[in-house]
Simulated assay, not measured.
Amino acid sequence: MDFTDSGLYRDITDFARDTPVWVRHTAEIGTEAGLLVFVALFVAGWWRARRAHTRAFAIAALAPLATAAAYVCSEALKSLVTEERPCRAVAGAAPSLAECPPHGDWSFPSNHATIAGASALTLVLVRRALVWLTVPLALLMAFSRVFVGVHYPHDVAAGLLLGTVVALVAVRLALRPALRLTGALRASPAPAARWLTGPGPRPATRPGPTYATHRRR
């Protein structure tokens, strides 16, 4: 089958072959390293949310779970579409920089792009300021899968869209149960449960009497 963006795939992989060696090695390592960055951000978001209100903690806890749900949907869609990898299917393309996955490890959609899209979206829900980090990282990860030759451009575009949509729906559907569970765990007598969810925000301290008040008394 001739895909509409196979020409763009050839252009990108040809360009990749002409880049310096360090760029190619960085691209090969970068997609996996990007996943580790997202994992670290999930952990940091959870830790920070332990001192936050119940809603903020619930969203931080749901972020990796929603990303996992997006990955499962991506895998299910792969088994339905069964699109061959471009590193085998596109004639005349430059050899892929990364090892071409075996037959049966289908191309559409890109799991990496799906995870990247879901991670970026849920982390922004946890903390809006992260948009300046997570969105460029997700786009770079998605592009790198085409750059190293293991996905078509439409694979990564679909993966980004699938990841963001599934993650958003998952967070919205699970938020109410997560709020109830967080409240129950924070009120639990079990130390492990209270440590996991954290104490929540510190209660506001009332200001003490001022010097002028003492003088009036």
Score class of each variant (00 low, 15 high):
Pro102Tyr: 00
Phe3Met: 11
Pro209Phe: 08
Ala76Gly: 09
Phe143Trp: 01
Pro207Asn: 07
Ala44Gly: 15
Arg180Glu: 12
Arg10Met: 13
His154Asp: 14
Arg202Ala: 12
Ala120Gln: 04
Tyr152His: 04
Ser74Pro: 00
Thr197Trp: 05
Met141Thr: 02
Ala68Leu: 14
Phe3Cys: 13
Pro191Asp: 09
Thr19Asn: 02
Val156Pro: 03
Leu168Gln: 12
Lys78His: 13
Glu75Asp: 15
Ala70Trp: 01
Leu196Cys: 05
Pro102Thr: 02
Val166Lys: 01
Leu181Glu: 09
Tyr211Arg: 13
Gly45Met: 10
Ala69Ser: 14
Pro95Met: 11
Gly7Gln: 14
Trp46Lys: 09
Ala94Val: 09
Ala94Ser: 15
Arg128His: 06
Val135His: 01
Leu139Ala: 03
Leu121Gly: 10
Ala187Phe: 03
Ala94Glu: 11
Ala69Pro: 05
Ala68Glu: 13
Pro64Tyr: 02
Leu125Thr: 00
Thr205Val: 15
Ala113Glu: 13
Ala70Ser: 10
Thr19Ser: 13
Asp5Lys: 03
Gly183Pro: 10
Ser144Lys: 00
Thr4Met: 08
Glu28Arg: 15
Asp14Ser: 14
Thr164Phe: 02
Gly30Val: 02
His154Lys: 07
His214Phe: 13
Pro86Tyr: 11
Leu140Trp: 00
His214Asn: 02
Asp11Ser: 12
Gly163Lys: 01
Ala142His: 03
Ala129Asn: 03
Leu140Glu: 00
Tyr152Asp: 00
Thr197Asn: 09
Ala49Val: 07
Val124Gln: 12
Pro101Cys: 08
Arg17Cys: 01
Phe57Ala: 09
Val169Gly: 09
Leu62Lys: 05
Ala190Gly: 04
Arg206Thr: 08
Ala170Met: 11
Ala93Pro: 10
Ala89Val: 08
Ala76Asp: 10
Pro102Lys: 02
Phe57His: 14
Leu162Trp: 12
Arg217Ile: 15
Thr122Phe: 04
Arg85Glu: 06
Ala178Tyr: 15
Glu32Arg: 09
Val171Ser: 06
Thr122Ser: 08
Leu162Pro: 11
Val23Glu: 12
Thr54Gln: 14
Ala68Asp: 06
Ala60Gln: 03
Ser96Lys: 07
Ala184Trp: 11
Ala44His: 10
